[in-house]
């Protein structure tokens, strides 16, 4: 093996890997898989139409407080904090799901044009509020695509909205404006999760330059559990 290969082998992330025991979890997964009918022949996974960042921490944002409760002292406690970092990124901590306009204003003063919505756990915004700046908001089906079309589809530029926001921990995410183009709007749709282990879900999208963002029309949220089951083919 040549020197380069040796060097790459040396950084194998699974170097400390111990052969996993075929424990109960592995057996459980096997049982779950074979319980789904194999007869469904799908050429590709059904692509989920929206990308959400899911906060999977045990403790989450207090989602019950959709109505602001003023403190006795008179100063409203901040539901969120927005910090502009020296590298141009903007860090956002959301403690409560309230005051979306205030958060949008704060983001605006940090240089980011944003549209913020908080919904309840069982509601989400209907699609079609705006024209997506890339493919992530409403990706076309890849079924029947030629190789050339597929190559075009896969270009990173078509998915840059997925890099605009990234979660850091259970109540904080960071926005990287360098993935935004002038006149685009960052659309943030927050809601508490509705499945065990998922405390909040955040949809981050980019509206095309010049596309207005229509008000959120509430529809029943996809059950996170339902989505998971759909993927399992039930």
């Amino acid at each position: 093996m040549n020197k380069i290969d040796r060097m790459v082998s040396a950084i194998d992330p699974a170097a400390e890997y111990a052969e996993p025991a075929i424990g109960q979890g592995v057996q459980d997964l096997l049982a779950e898989i074979v319980a789904t009918p194999p007869a469904q022949r799908r050429p590709s996974w059904p692509p989920l139409r929206r990308r959400v960042l899911a906060g999977v921490a045990v403790t989450g944002i207090a989602a019950a407080a959709l109505v602001a409760v003023p403190l006795v002292s008179g100063a409203p406690s901040a539901a969120y904090a927005v910090v502009k970092n020296s590298d141009g990124t903007v860090q956002v901590t959301v403690k409560e799901f309230r005051d979306p306009d205030g958060l949008a204003a704060k983001l605006k003063s940090a240089g980011i044009v944003a549209d913020v919505t908080f919904t309840e756990a069982d509601k989400q915004c209907a699609r079609g509020r705006f024209v997506g700046a890339d493919l992530a908001y409403d990706p076309p089906s890849t079924k029947g695509m030629t190789e050339q079309q597929r190559k075009e589809f896969d270009k990173p530029d078509n998915w840059r909205s997925r890099d605009v926001a990234a979660p850091i921990n259970k109540d904080t995410f960071v926005i990287s404006p360098r993935f935004m183009r002038p006149e685009e709007t960052l659309v943030l749709e927050f809601r508490p999760g509705n499945y065990a282990g998922m405390d909040w879900a955040l949809g981050t999208y980019l509206a095309k330059a010049g596309s207005p963002v229509a008000p959120c029309r509430l529809v029943k949220a996809n059950s996170d559990e339902e989505l998971a089951k759909k993927m399992a083919g039930n």
Binding site: G23, G25, E32, R51, A136, R162
Partner: peptide, 28 residues
């Protein structure tokens, strides 16, 4: 590749597996 494109979400399968995997993530 689908995960990176954000086309996938946490699956309900493998919940117990996830718990078992949490043990033993060593540091080099």
């Amino acid at each position: 590749a689908n995960h990176r494109r954000g086309e996938s979400r946490r699956t309900a399968l493998a919940s117990r597996l996830r718990g078992e995997l949490a043990v033993g993530q060593g540091q080099t």
